[in-house]
Amino acid sequence: MSRENSLVTTQWVEDNLDTPGIVIVEVDEDTTAYDKGHIKGAIKLDWSTELQDQVRRDFVNKQQFEQLLSSKGIANDDTVVLYGGNNNWFAAYAYWYFTLYGHADVKLMDGGRKKWELDSRELVDEVPTRPATSYTAQEQDRSIRAFRDDAIAAIGVQNLIDVRSPDEYAGRLLAPAHLPQEQSQRAGHVPTSLNVPWSKNCNDDGTFKSDDDLKALYAEAGIDDSKDTIALCRIGERSSLTWFVLKELLGHANVKNYDGSWTEYGSLVGVPIALGDEPGSADA
């Protein structure tokens, strides 16, 4: 993977609004953002109701994902272009999710909804209708998904990249600061995890930094290129963006996203936790 085949510009999207075989999909943390105007022809995916099992904490299964994409009118050979707010935070999550289920051609619109808006490009209210398809998903690609035992086994062994804000990493906040802070789990981070806030991957306008800047960012943070990597955050969305950077833009071989992330790890009984700004040791 590389920047050329995983990322498109806002201009490219504007030039391809009517190109057959391209489906533009908005996935936003604020699931009402689409309803306030969206890119012409774009459809909406709701991460909270459509991409999550509504009973247990997990993703929709393969059959549910097939039904969802079929009903949305997305075909296996379509190019899916994802965009959303907050530097593509949830669009990157959807990108990882589409990759998990083996969709062949998926891309992010660089800068997401914010860049589109700051460019003063057109948003419309009209909701498109797409004829249903018969979508076939692959089995989940577990090589890009980490579970809690993987995270614990990685302490002191693999690169653990905690992408939350410094205050969440240190234990001074329990959630990103636009969400209420009352939470049940403990504060802090997985010992030996390095804090590289997800926002450092992006420029102020939401576009990704250059490959050279990104390489420098992770080198400076102390990532060991010879080791496998697990990215985590609070609920696995922001870390999807870092997974995208490491795996798709920088081409690291083995990068997993731990979607359980801190809301799972910080609720586990008996696991080690480090507090403060330093990674801490594996013996904690």
């Binding site: 604020d30 804000s165 450092k200």
Partner: peptide, 9 residues
């Protein structure tokens, strides 16, 4: 420290 913590529309 000037580090990004959150963003809202």
């Amino acid at each position: 420290t000037g580090e990004f913590t959150a963003e809202v529309p």
